[in-house]
């Protein structure tokens, strides 16, 4: 219950107009800070839903794969430049952003992650690594504005943000591949 409360508090905080305005005024902060925090809000709130509706999660997300696919679809959708533009232009899309990232991405992520095998988890990280390299190159190489609402420099910054995150993910993957925890633990 505590976790649900903190998650809800975070969601409400992020939805406050001055906070949302500040975070959305910088492209990279919009995508790499506000959106992940919405997912984290949902992740925290998930505990209550898991306790209240165990049968629902058991029936629809027994092995974690449907949940993680839903998570992937939602998150991938929100890295499309046009989706960000629409969130800034149409209030209904903004509401959908808050709803989808917290409820449709955060909750399934929490429910699925522990159910996935190590290979499954690493596969998800590999997918994100490839995607982040791709998106990074797209945002850096594109000669024109991809979002009406942001300048080219914002776009470049976001591109480098994607690339640096991808590099961090590669470091993590190398770490889990080349260190053998059984030697230490």
């Amino acid at each position: 219950m505590n976790q649900f409360f903190y998650g809800l508090l975070l969601l409400i905080f992020l939805a406050l107009p001055p906070v949302a305005h500040l975070l959305e005024s910088i492209m990279i902060v919009h995508m790499h800070m506000q959106m992940p925090m919405l997912v984290i809000a949902g992740f925290l709130m998930a505990r209550l839903f898991q306790l209240r509706f165990p049968a629902f999660f058991e029936k629809w997300n027994g092995n974690g794969i449907p949940g993680i696919i839903l998570f992937l679809i939602i998150v991938v959708f929100w890295t499309i430049p046009r989706a960000m533009d629409e969130a800034l232009t149409f209030p209904s899309m903004e509401v959908f952003k808050f709803f989808s990232l917290s409820i449709l991405a955060g909750i399934p992520l929490r429910d699925s992650w522990k159910k996935l095998s190590t290979i499954g988890k690493n596969a998800i990280i590999v997918i994100f690594t490839i995607k982040y390299f791709g998106m990074g190159l797209l945002y850096i190489k594109a000669p024109v504005q991809l979002c009406n609402n942001y300048l080219i420099i914002d776009q470049l910054t976001l591109g480098w943000g994607f690339l640096t995150t991808a590099i961090c993910l590669v470091i993590y993957l190398l770490y889990v591949t080349f260190t053998d925890p059984t030697k230490y633990e």
Binding site: I26, I28, V29, H32, M33, I153, L156, T157, W160, G161, T164, T165, I167, C168, L169, I171, Y172, Y175, V176, T179
Partner: peptide
Amino acid sequence: GLWIVIMLIFVGMAYVIPLTEFIVN
């Protein structure tokens, strides 16, 4: 290993914005 990766992500969060600006403009 995990803490170092998280640290690097934090460093990225902090420095990508100003460094891109300083280099591009």
